[in-house]
């Protein structure tokens, strides 16, 4: 789920940071630059892990800042495809189920990757897994928001996002998610955690009935 990425960058340290040690200012600047941002084809950056190399610092004519080449390692959220993750349902829509991990929200489980057969309940705005009980009967298993859900990462999409205009200007900027994860729950064991906890006790029907009565 989390990886270390090796990166290199030239860091510009402005004179007001000269009272600090170089590594201290580099740490601050790298975290300011990268934390909570998505780097294309790398993933969502979380925090600086360590600095592996600090090169020579240069001062260019007309600029009092020092420029230093650094190599460093960053903690990055980048689940590999096929990995199993546990998240919470953010909302359901006609497109599928939106899942959040708290720090990362752009996860979609599309309709074709839900348990089969599923239907969308318009009144509750939730997806329902019509669990077959045999003899044509079925159990409705609702996927309400806030529930914990286990899913498999099936693919990832990176998109180049455009820089936003300066604050206060009326700049039509389309907000696209720079990094999206597509998941799937169409395998036994995937889906809401409560679905499968119930099954282990070999009395699916009773357990689910109990849950529904509780609500």
């Amino acid at each position: 789920m989390f990886v270390l990425s090796e990166m290199k960058d030239v860091i510009r340290v402005t004179p007001e940071h000269f009272h600090q040690s170089l590594s201290e200012s580099i740490t601050t600047l790298l975290n300011r630059k990268l934390a909570n941002k998505v780097v294309l084809n790398v993933g969502l950056c979380i925090a600086l892990f360590d600095i592996t190399h600090i090169g020579h610092s240069y001062i260019f004519p007309g600029d009092g800042s020092s420029h230093t080449e650094v190599k460093f390692r960053y903690i990055v959220f980048r689940p590999i495809v096929e990995e199993i993750l546990i998240g919470k349902i953010r909302s359901c829509s006609r497109d599928g189920v939106h899942v959040t991990l708290g720090f990362f929200e752009d996860i979609l489980i599309p309709v074709n990757a839900l348990q089969h057969p599923s239907r969308f309940d318009e009144t509750d705005q939730a997806w329902v897994w019509e669990y077959p009980k045999g003899e044509g009967e079925k159990h409705d298993l609702f996927m309400d928001s806030g529930e914990s859900i286990r899913f498999r990462v099936t693919s990832e999409v990176f998109e180049e996002s455009l820089p936003t205009g300066p604050l206060g200007t009326e700049c039509p900027v389309q907000t696209i998610a720079p990094y999206r994860i597509i998941g799937g729950i169409n395998e036994p064991g995937l889906g809401l955690l409560t679905w499968w906890e119930a099954q282990e006790q070999n009395d699916v029907g009773n357990d689910i009935d109990d849950q529904e009565n509780d609500e």
């Binding site: 789920m1 989390f2 990886v3 270390l4 990425s5 090796e6 990166m7 780097v39 993933g43 990055v76």
Partner: peptide, 14 residues
């Protein structure tokens, strides 16, 4: 900017 996007894996505990 990136040298190696998958230098190492970290477990949740780390």
């Amino acid at each position: 900017m990136t040298i190696n996007a998958h230098a190492a894996f970290l477990c949740n505990y780390e």
